Amino acid sequence: MSQDSRKGLDNLIELLAQKSINYHDFIAKAQKIELIAELFEPKDFSMWRAMGLNVIKLDNGKITLKTRETDIEDEIFCFVDIETSGGLSSGQIIEIGAIKVQGGRVLDRFESFVYANFVPEGITELTGISARDLVGAPSLASVLERFRLFLGDAIFVAHNVKFDYGFIDASMQKCGFGMLLNRKICTVELARRTIESPKYNLGALKELLGIENTHHRAYSDAISCKEIFAHAISALPWSVQSTEDLILFSRTAGLKKPSATANLS
């Protein structure tokens, strides 16, 4: 994927997140993005949704994102965490855990090991996962195919979302499943704007909020992310109503505490 193509796609999505645009303008802009034009016809909104972005046509004929029209209480959020055998260039996903929630109610859960024939000793020490645990586990392609169906067009939420989203997105593309277009929220950034804490890494927030479960295992960390998100949501100002309001707030609102020393691990 070329950087220019990805930048053009990101710019179009951010434009839709800010306002509705004319249908013909939307199609013209999308068709100029090589990344999209090669994959599907931009007029096919079902394909946008299949890739995680719920593009809708309003009664006035304009195009926008459903997340601009959806109240936070009605939105479906998918809390995700992964464990990997190394970085993106040298490792792979070895475990995915996720939980989908709407209005505080759990809709569904996802948890799976991913086969790998080698797990570095340091990763085993950190996560407790060894290559023996992965014997007989489904392949990466199999797990990612099921996960994409599980995720749908829900909002992808993770603690340090850039890592989890980026790793899954790149892995999806390597397996031939296309890119992720889901809107995303980082609970590190959201917590910095709603929760007073000396640090914002997962361990520190779990201790502060009294969250007790296994650390550095995908499903448990996804649950921890969900609990941090719930605390953050309870502290939102009244002006944050829609999903896009929340996404913007998580990126731009004033910080509860300077984040220079915060650890994203």
Rank of each mutant, 00 (worst) to 15 (best):
G103R: 08
L151Y: 03
K206H: 00
T70W: 06
S242P: 04
A37Y: 04
L236H: 03
N117M: 12
K226N: 11
L12M: 13
V119H: 10
C186T: 08
N11P: 00
E38S: 15
N22S: 11
F79R: 06
R192T: 06
G128L: 07
S90D: 09
A131N: 05
A141Y: 12
G166Y: 00
L144A: 14
A253V: 05
G103P: 05
Y219G: 07
C186W: 04
W238R: 05
A253L: 04
K100V: 15
F177I: 06
A137N: 08
G122D: 14
G104Y: 10
S46T: 10
C225F: 05
S2C: 01
H216S: 14
E111I: 12
I13G: 00
F113R: 10
P138L: 11
L202N: 03
I63S: 09
L255K: 14
K256Q: 05
F150L: 12
D108C: 15
L264Q: 01
P120A: 15
K162Q: 00
G61K: 03
E41P: 00
N11C: 10
S139L: 13
C225D: 01
T214R: 15
A191E: 02
L9V: 10
Y115W: 15
C78M: 12
G52A: 12
I72Q: 01
L16V: 07
R49D: 09
S142V: 14
L151I: 03
E189T: 09
G91L: 08
T194I: 05
P258G: 11
S139E: 09
V188W: 04
S242G: 13
Q31F: 08
G104Q: 09
N182I: 06
E34H: 03
K57H: 05
E121K: 08
I247N: 09
N182M: 06
I185Q: 04
